[in-house]
């Protein structure tokens, strides 16, 4: 059983079929890239998998559990973390709080214990703060822990969003264009972060336009065009695939 299974997923928008019967299986510990020309349905597929869009047909299974059209917070709590293409942070929370909020919902959510701040909760909070500081250090934002997330630079926010996704120690990480619109140094940093996660046995799926990154780190590449899967394989085979070349350069 694969960690993530997508069967015959279909998503229509008015006038277009954004995702047209896509099948996808991601094994535990894999590093898979999803590529394709603009508008080929990559992000839509992500959004259907994580509950942000309701699929019109098809099924999504995570750890064998049917999560088709489950609400985003349910998918997240099952252990699927995702980042967004439009860099997304909570601007009025501090960098530290941005990370904390990503872990707390996985721990304890009862109203009364939160209001009364039970001893157990304060211990969990202290642990969360410690973990958050470690992750901030990992992405090089230690000095910004108390800065408002809205005041950070674009690149810093991107790193913060990435670190936040790691807070609950997710089993599956879906990254939407982690290397887009950042400078070459940061692209290398991101590559390293992703490879490290992979090395730790995490399962990673990324949507990415930067071919160097994709070809460099992916174990397997899945190519979408017009909402359909047109090719799948190792970076080497994808590079030579006629349909892929056609999809990218043929128009």
């Amino acid at each position: 059983m694969a960690l993530l299974e997508v069967h015959g997923l279909v998503k229509h928008f008015i006038g277009v079929t954004a995702v047209d019967g896509v099948d996808l299986a991601v094994e535990r510990g894999e590093l898979v890239s999803l590529i394709g020309p603009n508008g080929s349905g990559k992000t839509t597929l992500f959004n259907c998998v994580t509950g942000y869009l309701a699929a019109d047909a098809g099924r999504v299974l995570f750890r064998g559990r049917d999560v088709t059209n489950a609400a985003p917070h349910r998918v997240a709590r099952l252990g699927v973390a995702r980042t967004f293409q439009q860099v997304s942070v909570f601007p009025r929370l501090s960098a530290l709080e941005n990370l904390l909020v990503f872990l707390q919902q996985h721990q304890e959510e009862r109203l009364l214990s939160r209001l009364l701040r039970t001893r157990r909760l304060r211990r969990l909070e202290a642990e969360a703060v410690e973990r958050a500081h470690r992750l901030l250090e990992l992405v090089g934002l230690s000095g910004k822990a108390d800065a408002g997330a809205g005041t950070l630079s674009y690149g810093q926010r991107k790193l913060l969003a990435f670190a936040a996704a790691l807070m609950p120690d997710p089993e599956l990480l879906l990254l939407d264009e982690p290397a887009a619109a950042v400078n070459p140094t940061m692209i290398n940093q991101m590559k390293e972060h992703i490879l490290r996660l992979h090395g730790q046995g995490k399962t990673v799926v990324l949507v990415e336009h930067n071919m160097d990154v994709v070809m460099d780190i992916s174990q397997r590449v899945v190519v979408l065009d017009h909402g359909q899967k047109i090719a799948e394989g190792s970076p080497q085979t994808i590079r030579r695939d006629a349909r892929v070349i056609e999809a990218y350069f043929g128009r």
Partner: peptide
């Protein structure tokens, strides 16, 4: 949307 991704 991001709150949803945080499990809220």
């Amino acid at each position: 949307p991001l709150a949803g991704a945080a499990g809220i």
